[in-house]
Simulated assay, not measured.
Amino acid sequence: MYLAIVFQFLLYFGIIALTAYWLFSLRDNIEKYFQNKVVWITGASSGIGRELAKQLARISPSTCLVLSARREEELHKLANELQLDSDHCLVLPLDLELQQDCFKSKFDLVIERFGRIDVLINNAGISQRSLIRDTLYNVDSRLMNINFLGTVTLSKTVLQHFIELQKGHFVVVTSAAGYIGTALRSSYAASKHALHGFFNSLRLEHACDNIDVTIVCPGYVRTEISQHAFEGSGLLHGKMDPKTDKGTDPSKCAYDILRGVANREHEIYVGYLGSVVIYLQRFVPRLFYRILLRSKTD
């Protein structure tokens, strides 16, 4: 009888504690974690990257932001919208496909402005909408070069800096496709799978250097990702996917990401159907395969 009472008490306490954790471990943790930090965001001109910058500027005004993407004009528009001055913002155009100097010159500009980097958010990338048989080698190569090699090269450039500081945080925005290969996204999924392998290894190798790695796996988020995706010929898809259009609002997605980063989580599942499809794949793969067969052209 006594053990039953103790068990019941612990169960109720656990439920209350978990509820309190999810309800109250929100904004305060984000602001505290990012306070006075230098955060470099790639792919900041649109989508999730843009929302991450907006959320950080709102929640943690002391954070210094490095905004990178190919479209410099959009980055300046964002900096002006957020009313960021030069003491708290550096607009730094960056194309992950161009890796001639291993991004050392870009890294040097950040250090020259702010003296250090605390968090690198690897968000930039490009998607795909084409069948394997219709996809040119050049498209496969570009997807791997941008999504995987570009991200890895930039991260390795920052890695030595983190080692010297004996701290740092890599945030890698991959996709639910990092776990699940689906139709029309073969090389995109491959590039995201590769990121999981690389950064899981990095986390293990550099735990002794106090370097954190958070892998973010979005499901459907309402961004322009499908419109900017490669078709098999290399042309841009230029269409909004129906499921993407119904996806999670990017501002909510960005907030959930920042909360997970502040809690130093190893993996974060965000966005419409993100966690659902990952758990289905993990626990009932045959059932999930049949579900995918019925929707393979979506």
Rank of each mutant, 00 (worst) to 15 (best):
P93L: 04
V91L: 11
F199V: 01
L84E: 03
R142Y: 12
F198V: 15
L84D: 04
V139A: 08
F162I: 00
V110E: 03
Q128G: 08
S201C: 10
D85C: 14
N147Y: 00
T157V: 11
Q83W: 04
L143I: 06
A79T: 03
C89E: 00
V152M: 01
L75Y: 01
T182M: 07
S127K: 01
L78Q: 00
E72P: 08
F162S: 02
I111A: 09
S105Y: 10
L84C: 07
H76K: 10
V110Q: 02
C102A: 12
V173R: 02
R185L: 14
Q100T: 07
S187A: 11
R133W: 04
K104M: 13
E81Q: 13
C64Q: 14
F199Q: 12
H88S: 07
I163C: 15
A69I: 06
Q128K: 09
L65F: 09
V171P: 10
V171E: 07
L136W: 13
S191Y: 09
K104T: 14
E73F: 11
Q100P: 01
K77L: 14
S127V: 12
S201H: 03
Y137H: 15
I126N: 10
K104C: 14
L143D: 02
K77S: 02
S127R: 00
R133I: 12
I126A: 13
T151W: 08
K167D: 13
R70V: 02
Q83S: 14
S86A: 13
V110K: 03
Y137Q: 15
C89G: 08
F162N: 07
G150L: 05
N123P: 05
T135C: 06
L92I: 04
D140E: 14
G197Y: 00
R142E: 00
I180W: 01
S191A: 13
M144Y: 04
F148S: 08
Y137R: 15
R129P: 01
N145R: 13
E72F: 07
E97P: 06
N145G: 00
